[in-house]
Simulated assay, not measured.
Amino acid sequence: MASSVHHLLFIINLLIIPTTLLSQSIIQMPPRRHRITDDNLYCDSWRFSVETNDAGTWTSIPSRCVAFVQDYMTGDRYLSDSAAVANYSLSFARGFRSEEMVRTLGSSTSMRLCSPICPTIRRMDSGLNSYGHRSVTFDEASFDEWVDLAEAPALPASLKLYKELKHLGFKIFLLTGRSEHQRNATAKNLLYAGYNNWERLLLRGPSDQGTTATVYKSEKRSDLINEGYRIHGSSGDQWSDLLGFAVAQRSFKLPNPMYYIA
């Protein structure tokens, strides 16, 4: 009779240093531990942790990191990081030239800083704290108003990737957490930003309301698989875009230290 006892495992990957190197000084460690007081260093480590999903669910940018995140998002580093992810994605896609590929792109992926990064950045300086900045909580009414403007620019790296995938002959599905009533505004914005000829734009219908992003997007991917598609690649700026079930062969996480969607 099989045992009903379940074992909890925590796997730690160890770095083994060859004994021949033990006598050599590979990295000089400081003799004493020092408290990290530099905001940029602390915030860069915080950003790394949220991007790798080590931090798990988080609700707001630390006060001391608001200015850091704003500089990151509006400067060259965000564009460079996004381009690096897009290049890896394209390199993978080129291995399937003779096959059909389903590409699921979240709306925040396909429309630069948005959903709802753009309106949040514009409002980050509207109040002050001891660091001179404050983070802003998500406001659905303001976000809906911004969606209706349909003016979000494309993230250059994502638009380039989109066009390259189209050139290679892949079918592209755009999967977003926006609701069905925002279809016209979303499609208008995509066209305005330079996207066209996508295979299908998938939004939340009435039966999808109330489900988490991870479940909702997994279900939509599952529907595509049931239609006979093979999902070779998927990209998004949220882990909920990529995890769950019916996942792609390869997933590509775009940077987003602005907010977390479960």
Rank of each mutant, 00 (worst) to 15 (best):
I61S: 02
V69I: 09
S110K: 02
D54L: 11
F143E: 03
G106K: 00
L149P: 08
V85Q: 04
V69E: 04
E51Y: 07
D54E: 10
F96S: 07
F48C: 15
R122N: 15
A152G: 03
P116A: 10
F143T: 01
Y131R: 11
N53E: 07
H133T: 04
K166T: 04
T37V: 14
L128A: 13
R64Y: 03
G75A: 09
V136H: 00
R32V: 11
I61N: 01
A86P: 01
S63G: 12
I121N: 08
T52Y: 09
S49H: 13
P153F: 04
G169H: 06
A84Q: 08
R47I: 07
A67N: 13
S142A: 13
M29D: 14
F96W: 12
P119Y: 05
S130L: 13
H133R: 10
V69F: 03
D76V: 06
T37Q: 13
A152E: 02
A86T: 00
E145F: 07
L41T: 10
S115D: 06
M124G: 07
L165D: 01
E51G: 10
P31K: 14
K163F: 03
R47N: 09
L41V: 13
W58A: 06
A84D: 06
Y88S: 13
Y78R: 07
R94H: 14
I121V: 12
I61L: 07
A67C: 11
G132D: 12
T104K: 00
